[in-house]
């Protein structure tokens, strides 16, 4: 019970200190809006293309929201040594990591809701299964947040966190089937697509919103879950190795 009090308060503190700040709220709204506009202009097919664009918009919003927040907030706390307080708390590394990442996961999910809300006003969105869509959003937010933590562990400065995040994010959005279906990518690039968690997330959401998935949804869920577990394990390993030096 005592450990859960600690974990819950870490989450509450992060929400109060970082996620409910006006710049982050505006980021959560403006960023998906900007991507929506960009995609609409690029596709040139008007409002009819919204359902096809939606999975990509949601994925990008989650990816950028979670990795930015996680990488920057953790790096900031490491930089001013306040993260040491959390490392000194009598809770396990697993629980600490879950507490610390849950705020970003939630933030990422909220980021995904905004494109859905906007799209539902201007287009006819039909989702095959809302619970499965929520699960897909949750898994993408979780895996992206864990990637953000991995970036935070690798860097010392906040600006380094942003740079390294982009190093991962931009190739990922080009290779995960957002702009071009994976099946149309050059054959030698496709293996790269299959090692990116976002590929499975986008395909799952595409399947649930337009029915255009090329992999079975259950397989995508399994792969996303595996990514979450593997990256969580990597985070734990590197936290112990790099922060408990």
């Amino acid at each position: 019970m005592k450990k859960w009090i600690a974990a819950w308060n870490i989450l509450l503190k992060d929400v109060r200190t970082y996620y409910l700040k006006p710049p982050n709220i505006s980021w959560g709204i403006i960023f998906p809006l900007a991507w929506t506009g960009m995609f609409l202009i690029r596709s040139g097919s008007g409002l009819d293309s919204i359902p096809a664009l939606l999975p990509g918009l949601m994925a990008i919003s989650i990816l950028f929201g979670t990795t930015s927040m996680m990488a920057v907030t953790v790096t900031f706390e490491k930089k001013n040594s306040s993260f040491d307080r959390l490392l000194l708390a009598p809770i396990s590394f697993d629980l600490l990591m879950l507490a610390k990442t849950s705020g970003a996961i939630f933030f990422g999910m909220i980021n995904a809701v905004i494109p859905v809300l906007l799209a539902s006003f201007i287009s006819d969105i039909r989702v095959a299964s809302w619970p499965l869509l929520i699960l897909a959003v949750f898994l993408i937010a979780t895996v992206s947040t864990f990637l953000g933590l991995l970036i935070a562990i690798a860097v010392r400065e906040v600006f380094e966190a942003q740079t390294l995040s982009n190093f991962f994010r931009f190739p990922m959005i080009f290779l995960c089937g957002l702009f071009l279906p994976v099946s149309k990518l050059p054959i030698f690039i496709r293996p790269l697509s299959y090692i990116l968690p976002l590929t499975y997330g986008v395909d799952t959401m595409r399947g649930l919103i337009t029915g255009g998935n090329f992999m079975p949804i259950t397989l995508s869920f399994a792969v996303l879950t595996a990514f979450c577990i593997i990256i969580f394990g990597l985070n734990k390993h590197f936290i112990k190795k790099r922060w408990i030096t």
Binding site: M1, A6, R85, A89
Partner: peptide, 17 residues
């Protein structure tokens, strides 16, 4: 730095359950 003195103390106490 973003929390008040009172909030900081309460948060630190919560870390110990």
């Amino acid at each position: 730095p973003e929390l008040t003195g009172f909030q900081n103390l309460c948060f630190c106490a919560s870390l110990y359950g």
